[in-house]
């Protein structure tokens, strides 16, 4: 019996490896190997191909590099403001759309999901043309007397950050909302009935029943959004920077870590080792935040 068990275990084990092998192999070759290679690069200093081993020189360089500090600061601002705003909005929208009696439900859901289907470069061009000084958005805001001066979306550091946050929120809220909506539809509605009979108001039901049951999905969307925001690149590059001579937004207010890595690799004198070092700062930040988020949202069994 014991040997039969062992051979069954062996059978499962072989099958297990058989199923995961293609993925493990591909990730090993095309992700893990390059990751280790760039770790090795992070100990190299010098310009372009003329590199030598520099030990911890690149790590020292991080500490007296004002541009890096600014990029780290900007990235954290985007993370702290954008992720909660987007996820709250997504959760709120999902809970409104979870009502089966709502009319045009499918239509609204589709409309809100649509942005994340848009093409990246296309949407950057669209946003740029809508938010210029005397473009559509400003003339609308002034026309509706919401402001009396056009808002300097792309020329003022504060508003430039706001614009980037609006852009990412526009593109990804619907995407996260779908996850929440899916989770809400899995909740057994009879729990709500019981609490309604007990006289719990609707906001109470939301915070004390819905939110706790959504914890795994909240964790999932938080972690993926954190990763996305900390690696923020495409939007800034396509909306805020145009030529070699320009900063990433006014006063470099939209310079993120990923944009800085891109600059170090492609725009500035190529400093591949230092660029790799900065990218490991992102890895470290994501890891730290993910751990914190796991603890904060862990399921208390």
């Amino acid at each position: 019996m014991a040997s039969a068990n062992r051979s069954l275990n062996r059978y499962f084990n072989i099958n297990g490896w058989f199923f995961v092998a293609p993925a493990a192999l591909l990730i090993g070759v095309f992700m893990v190997y390059p990751i280790l290679y760039s770790l090795w690069m992070s100990f190299q200093t010098g310009k372009g191909m003329m590199t030598q081993f520099g030990g911890l020189a690149n790590i020292k360089r991080l500490f007296d590099d004002p541009m890096f500090v600014l990029a780290l600061y900007n990235t954290m601002i985007f993370f702290i403001v954008q992720v909660p705003v987007m996820l709250t909005l997504a959760l709120f929208l999902a809970s409104l759309l979870d009502n089966p009696n709502l009319k045009f439900r499918g239509l609204i859901r589709t409309a809100i999901f649509l942005p994340c289907v848009s093409s990246l470069v296309g949407y950057a061009v669209l946003f740029k043309s809508m938010f210029v000084q005397d473009g559509l958005i400003n003339s609308t805001l002034v026309g509706l007397h919401i402001t009396d001066q056009p808002i300097p979306w792309m020329t003022d550091p504060f508003w430039a950050r706001v614009l980037i946050i609006i852009a990412i929120t526009w593109r990804w809220t619907g995407y996260n909302m779908i996850f929440f909506l899916a989770a809400l539809q899995n909740i057994d509605k009879s729990i709500y009935e019981a609490s309604r009979i007990d006289g719990v108001p609707s906001w109470g039901r939301f915070f004390y029943l819905t939110v706790p049951m959504l914890k795994p999905v909240i964790l999932f969307t938080t972690v993926t959004s954190t990763i996305g925001t900390l690696q923020l690149f495409d939007e800034v590059r396509n909306i805020m920077t145009s030529d070699a001579g320009s900063a990433a937004g006014p006063s470099n207010s939209a310079l993120t870590l990923s944009v800085y890595i891109y600059n170090l690799t492609f725009k500035f004198v190529p400093s591949f080792g230092y660029a790799a070092t900065v990218s490991y700062v992102i890895v470290l930040a994501v890891a730290l935040l993910a751990i914190i988020q796991f603890y904060a949202l862990r399921e208390k069994d």
Partner: peptide, 14 residues
């Protein structure tokens, strides 16, 4: 290093 300095200059303009 023109691009590096240029980026530093641009940041001071506003």
């Amino acid at each position: 290093f023109t691009n590096e300095v240029d980026s530093a200059v641009a940041a001071q303009l506003p």
